[in-house]
């Protein structure tokens, strides 16, 4: 008799909803047959991990023109291995345990840069950034390049014990890692904390 039940906006849903309050107030001692079949139906239709996955409505096209020019090198980048041994890696967060992250840990630098620069705003880009970061690369927010610090141990007898040089990955032109000029000054605030 409550006027709200007569409101066409709430009908007939409200009446159906009100019925579900009964088992809450007076729980059945034993599951009645219709409850059993509802429960079984729910089990049958149980959502799985695909149902719970992140929705993807709009897929952005690749962010930069695909580098298929003949001027781009075919062979992989040759650099001193930046792969750090398992034990000395940063404490594992939950991303590192996912299969995609594990696959990316085996990717060449080439592939990681490709994913990073071409799949803007995606989970894949995020993981590629994490992997590059794990390998010691740092992302410069100003010029949008990844940089790597090379430390070369000098033989004894020299004034300095080591020589530091920086490399950056040239994603815009040569698709190669190049040495930064002597004028390069490292400033922590220019780099993204991954």
């Amino acid at each position: 008799e409550n006027p709200v039940f007569k409101n066409p906006l709430f009908s007939p849903g409200l009446a159906y909803w009100a019925q579900t309050k009964r088992p809450l107030l007076q729980p059945f001692e034993k599951m009645p047959p219709d409850m059993v079949s509802q429960l079984e139906s729910s089990l049958l239709n149980c959502p799985d991990s695909l149902d719970a996955d992140t929705p993807k409505l709009y897929q952005a096209p690749l962010s930069l023109p695909h580098p298929t020019s003949i001027f781009f090198p075919n062979e992989p980048i040759r650099l001193v291995s930046t792969e750090t041994p398992e034990e000395s890696r940063p404490a594992r967060d939950f991303y590192s345990r996912t299969s995609l992250a594990r696959i990316m840990s085996k990717f060449d630098l080439d592939t990681l840069f490709m994913v990073f620069y071409h799949y803007q705003g995606t989970y894949e880009q995020f993981l590629a950034a994490k992997e590059l970061s794990n390998r010691g690369w740092q992302f410069n927010k100003i010029n949008r390049c990844w940089l790597f610090k090379e430390v070369e141990k000098l033989p004894p007898g020299n004034e300095k014990s080591e020589e530091v040089s920086w490399r950056y990955f040239d994603y815009q032109k040569s698709w190669l890692a190049r040495r930064c000029g002597d004028e390069f000054v490292y400033r922590q605030e220019d780099f993204e904390k991954i």
Binding site: D34, S37, Q38, N45
Partner: peptide, 24 residues
């Protein structure tokens, strides 16, 4: 309201998945 009506009307043929998906 929509959910209650759907499951009230359809009882055993009610499918929870679209509602789950909306919340998810």
């Amino acid at each position: 309201l929509v959910f209650s009506e759907d499951q009230g009307r359809n009882d055993t043929s009610f499918n929870e998945r679209p509602y789950f998906r909306l919340f998810s």
